[in-house]
């Protein structure tokens, strides 16, 4: 059993966006803080720190995780995908292009989390209905767009899938 006492720090090693990374954390360090301030991956945003808004969503060992409700220790040895890891694979460029064209983002603060959810969602549900897309998006708060552009962009990209 791994134990870490009060105030103790430990080196955490993980694979982030396919690259081996490591940094220090306490037992109580939130994964969101570890990614941002220890690994300098500032693309993950913190919107509420109580697991509601979805801005800090990342993919942790193939599952979606609110990184503010996850401990850095839980990422030890894990594989993580953050917004910095979305690039040219799959439908990611098409998704970015569609988000932009449909006005699916404004301030962009919630967008990283949304895009990671969408990536995970389309892998599990390649042909979602608009209702399913809205249902999935209910796990994210966006105060700028009214979500309409997101729904259109996601539907369009899903539609274009083989």
């Amino acid at each position: 059993m791994m134990r870490l006492g009060l105030g103790e720090r430990r080196r955490i090693s993980c694979t982030v966006n396919g690259v081996a990374r490591s940094g220090f954390a306490e037992g109580r360090t939130l994964l969101s803080d570890f990614l941002r301030h220890e690994l300098n991956l500032y693309g993950t945003h913190v919107g509420c720190e109580h697991g509601v808004c979805g801005a800090c969503t990342v993919i942790l060992d193939s599952r979606l995780a609110r990184s503010c409700g996850t401990l850095a220790m839980q990422a030890d040895g894990a594989e993580i995908t953050t917004i910095e890891g979305l690039g040219d694979s799959d439908r990611e460029p098409a998704l970015r292009e569609a988000f932009s064209r449909h006005g699916a983002l404004q301030c962009g603060f919630c967008t990283a989390g949304v895009l990671l959810s969408v990536k995970h969602f389309l892998q599990h549900n390649p042909k979602p209905s608009d209702g399913e897309i809205r249902d999935m998006l209910s796990g994210h708060l966006c105060r700028c767009t009214g979500y309409e552009g997101m729904v259109r962009a996601i539907a369009e990209v899903a539609e274009g899938q083989p």
Partner: peptide
């Protein structure tokens, strides 16, 4: 909004978890 400090235990078996509890 950061947790207060706690001791972190990561058991590998149920027995270890129960011992920590």
């Amino acid at each position: 909004m950061k947790p207060a400090a706690f001791e972190y235990c990561r058991p590998d078996t149920l027995e270890e978890a129960l011992a920590a509890l």
